[in-house]
Amino acid sequence: MAKSDGIRILQGLLVFGNVVIGMCGIALTAECIFFVSDPHGLYPLLEATENDDIYAAAWIGIFVGFALFVLSILGIIGVIKSNRTLLLVYIILMLITYAFEMASCITAATHRDFLTPNLFLKQMLERYKKSEPDNNNDKWMIDGVTDTWDKIMVQNQCCGVHGPSDWQEYTSAFRATHNDADYPWPRNCCVLDDQGSPTSVDGCKLGVPGYYNSNGCYDAISGPVNTQAWGVAWFGFAILCWTFFVLLGTMFFWSRIDY
């Protein structure tokens, strides 16, 4: 009698564990969809650096979240019915999902490290307003980078990655077509009026305080991406830790089912 009581408690725990997994799965899907939908419009920058694996991680996260939700239902049914075959299928599918989520989690965590200021700096200098694209793909990326930078600089009232001096310290594709005397930095680095033209071109060119944006855009770029990637990585990690115990419990339960 005592043994069957223990099994009943284990069953209850496993059902509870699976309910939590299911809910976390939905949350993970939602979070990853938010990330993939790119609310800050930063995807072109990451795409152009050929470093958009963070988005790949989020895509995996979407499917893994959904799979976890479906599997948790399967698991609950299997545990309640104490059906061996159902539980075996559950365990095997769960292990596969686990491996995928692990991949997503590690990718997100790893690529957070790659989002250095220099990465964006180099790409900005090489692509912003580049006049001669190598091919169609290059042109596509150049347009994406240019538009994104124009937008970021205006929206966040910032300039360059570290600051306007980026445009002065390095040569750039922009410099090849815009001379230094008239365009020490792009016009979007200037403080703009309501019509979108600089309040004072002279003040902006000379760098008179109050007429150009002296702060860099790195925080505006890496901030959102970093936070979202952090979420994907650590939330995924938390789910995996929880799933680990539930899975172990399920395996134990599976091996103790009587015929």
Binding site: E169, Y170, S172, A233, F237
Partner: peptide, 26 residues
């Protein structure tokens, strides 16, 4: 003086603790 953007080093250097913890524990 102008510097060439080609010479900018984009390697992230040391790995963050996050990544090491997540990878090893997982």
């Amino acid at each position: 003086r102008v510097k060439l953007p080609l010479k900018i080093d984009t390697w992230p250097g040391r790995r963050s603790g996050d990544m090491i913890v997540i990878t090893s524990i997982l």
